[in-house]
Design a protein around this nucleic acid. Structure first.
Length: 662
DNA sequence: CGACAGATAAACAGAT
DNA sequence: GATCTGTTTATCTGTC
């Protein structure tokens, strides 16, 4: 794994460093070959843009990883993950794993003012770069023309001199291009950081001193930012038409040229021609989309007589005109691709933000013991996650973001439950929305293997699973476990063997694994030995709000988790009460959490193709083969629980409480 | 600082 | 022989 990552890192680094020279080489070759048509230059421009974005994202990732608050805790993790994070950049400009996004979301690097300044700088840089590219292209054309004219022998000497001059000029421009690109890269990675961080700004962080603008930007403001960026492109269109170039304005950042020799070396041409940003450049698919647009009565990009393409707002009197405008102004080119790319990022960030906010809401509700009417369930402006509702093993029809509360958790005929149990149930709903999240996002679930295995087994009606079925549960329930199969499967086996709470039961067909719940609870109880009196004597459900510190709440949650688990497991399998959506899975106590909620992608792979992010991003992940055989395994139960005498009391107590829930 | 839990890797053996 | 399953050991990291 490490070797693979290292290799990818090296490759990617080479790509980044040589990308421009490679492009220059392509430009050179194109000039000599006389392929300087508009189409060719478009492709090269898009390649350049792609490279720039790759570099920007790479720089952003590296910057994030270098920040101490970036979430990487151990030096080893750093060593392992830094190259992996970088290697992700190979997959494409948009490939940001959810972990990275989470990481990015925690960064509030720039103030909005700084961002605006960056945006402006970005616009200026892009303008200048367009100038340079255009001028460079013209130089190539000129060179090509002169090469053609060399067939006239009389003018050869003079033309050779001109050619040398042109070559020298090209060197200069290549350097300028590179430097512009470097500058843009720096700005863009800051911009990327901020654009992604902006969305998490409402997370309660206080505004930095000296900031006058609100830190949290609404989607509308984001769109405005977006317009700012795209407006630059629109401006470019106009500027590019100018044949003359004021190169003096572009030299501000090109005073130092340290890599001229590297630039002049023409690297082997890169093959980016197949797709730009993962989009096929074939016109067939585009035509299909146009047809779809025409057949559809309403177009998402058309409303109130205005083109809703981000940053456009062109007035179109009728739909036909809009279609014409759409095909003319927003055809498949670099600009549209880049705009679409930005929009994808916006959507992605919003989606993740939504998930986080929803989770926060549930946590707040659980913490405050609120009724359902008080919190407003966050609406779903984006159907990206929820659209991928693979609720095969989710018997519930209740949406995951619908807050379940203790009061409504049980039916009216249900006996009153202790406050601790209520608290447990409220925690059940707390993390309920995460089901879809973990199912679709490549985020490591914050639960221990033991907890997950137990959940997998308990979700089964017979409370037993074969090893392969446990594997399948992991892969179907968590996107994270759809890769690195060797690692986590080994861990699953290891945990099954290690923990006495997992009991292997032989039968005719083979073996199934069951959970010795008493042993499981005993193991949990053992962890509470640090504060046994706290666990046993605390008035559960009494004001565990603001007055309780974290450890106290943790202890409380820990003490109530077994009940929670049992209640919800039972509900998921039989009674179908409030936790019928199998969200009992996530009713974990802090002890059950593996402390890696922000666990980063450890191998540089990103979301599987069928994750909602994969729908938006050009991600290609080597999928682990899914073995989803669901053979029934009748069993003869054999229990082998060892009970520690000193813990039997509490164990029994908890067991009784658990049964009370049932 | 040590104990402990959890994760990860790996070796190994038996079964399929 | 390859693969799967299960056990065991070792190491590292984070937490208490």
């Amino acid at each position: 794994m490490m070797q693979e990552s290292a290799t990818k890192t090296i490759s990617n680094s080479a790509l980044s460093h040589n990308g421009l020279s490679a492009l220059s080489g392509q430009l050179d070759a194109g000039g000599r070959d006389g392929r300087l048509g508009d189409g060719g230059s478009e492709v090269r421009a898009s390649e350049l843009l792609q490279l720039q974005q790759q570099q920007a994202l790479q720089a952003a990732r590296q910057l994030l990883l270098q920040q101490p608050s970036g979430g990487l805790k151990s030096p080893k993790s750093n060593d392992q993950q830094r190259p992996q994070q970088v290697s992700v950049a190979m997959m494409g400009p948009q490939v940001i794993t959810p972990q990275q996004v989470q990481q990015i979301l925690q960064q509030q690097v720039l103030s909005p003012q700084q961002l605006q300044a960056l945006l402006q700088q970005q616009q200026a840089v892009m303008l200048q770069q367009q100038h340079l590219q255009e001028f460079y292209k013209k130089q190539q054309e000129q060179l090509h023309l002169q090469l053609l004219q060399q067939q006239h022998p009389g003018k050869q000497v003079k033309e050779q001199q001109q050619q040398q001059q042109l070559a020298a000029q090209q060197l200069v421009f290549q350097q300028q291009l590179l430097q512009m690109q470097q500058l843009q890269q720096q700005q863009q990675h800051l911009l990327t950081l901020q654009r992604q961080g902006l969305i998490s700004l409402p997370h309660g962080q206080a505004a930095l001193p000296g900031q006058t603008l609100p830190q949290g930007l609404s989607p509308v403001e984001l769109q405005q930012l977006w317009k700012d960026v795209t407006g630059t492109h629109n401006m470019d269109d106009g500027v590019i038409k100018h044949s003359g170039l004021d190169l003096t304005t572009t030299n501000s950042s090109s005073t130092t040229s340290s890599s001229s020799s590297a630039i002049s070396k023409a690297s082997p041409p890169l093959t980016h021609h197949t797709a730009v940003n993962g989009q096929s450049s074939s016109h067939g698919s585009r035509r299909e989309s146009v047809i779809q647009e025409e057949t559809g009565a309403a177009h998402s990009l058309y409303g109130h007589g205005v083109c809703k393409w981000p940053g456009c707002e062109s007035v179109c009197d009728d739909f036909g005109q809009f279609l014409k405008h759409l095909n003319n102004e927003h055809a498949l080119d670099d600009r549209s691709t880049a705009q679409c790319r930005v929009q994808m990022q916006v959507v992605q960030q919003l989606e993740i933000q939504l998930s986080k906010e929803r989770e926060r809401l549930q946590a707040m509700m659980a913490h405050l013991h609120m009724r359902p009417s008080e919190p407003k369930p966050s609406p779903k402006p984006l159907n990206l996650v929820s659209s991928v509702t693979m609720s095969k093993n989710l018997p519930s029809a209740s949406p995951p973001n619908l807050p379940h509360t203790p009061d409504h958790a049980h039916g009216p005929s249900d006996p009153p439950v202790p406050d601790s149990i209520k608290h447990s149930i409220s925690m059940c709903s707390e993390i309920a929305p995460n089901y879809e999240f973990y199912k679709n996002a490549d985020v490591r679930p914050p639960f221990t293997y033991a907890t997950l295995i137990r959940q997998a087994i308990m979700e089964n009606r017979d409370n037993q699973l074969t090893l392969n079925e446990i594997y399948s549960w992991f892969t179907t329930t968590f996107a994270y476990f759809r890769r690195n199969a060797a690692t986590w499967k080994n861990a699953v086996r290891h945990n099954l063997s290690l923990h006495k709470c997992f009991v292997r039961v032989e039968n005719v067909k083979g073996a199934v694994w069951t959970v010795d719940e008493l042993e499981y609870q005993r193991r949990r109880s053992q962890k509470m030995t640090g504060s046994p009196t706290l666990v046993k004597n605390l008035p559960c459900g009494l004001g565990y709000g603001a007055a309780l510190n974290a450890s106290l709440q943790a202890a409380l949650a820990e003490s109530s988790m077994p009940l929670l688990g049992n209640a919800c497991f039972m509900n998921s399998s039989s009674t179908g009460l409030m936790c019928s959506n199998s969200t009992g899975l996530f009713q974990a106590s802090p002890e059950d959490l593996n402390g890696s909620f922000d666990h980063l992608d450890t191998n540089g792979h990103s979301s599987p193709d069928y994750s909602p992010y994969a729908h938006m991003l050009p991600i290609h992940v080597k999928e682990e083969p899914l073995n989803l055989d669901d053979e029934d395994c009748p069993m003869s139960l054999v229990t082998s629980a060892n009970h520690s005498p000193e813990l039997d009391d509490r164990e029994l107590e908890e067991g009784n409480l658990s049964e009370d829930v049932e």
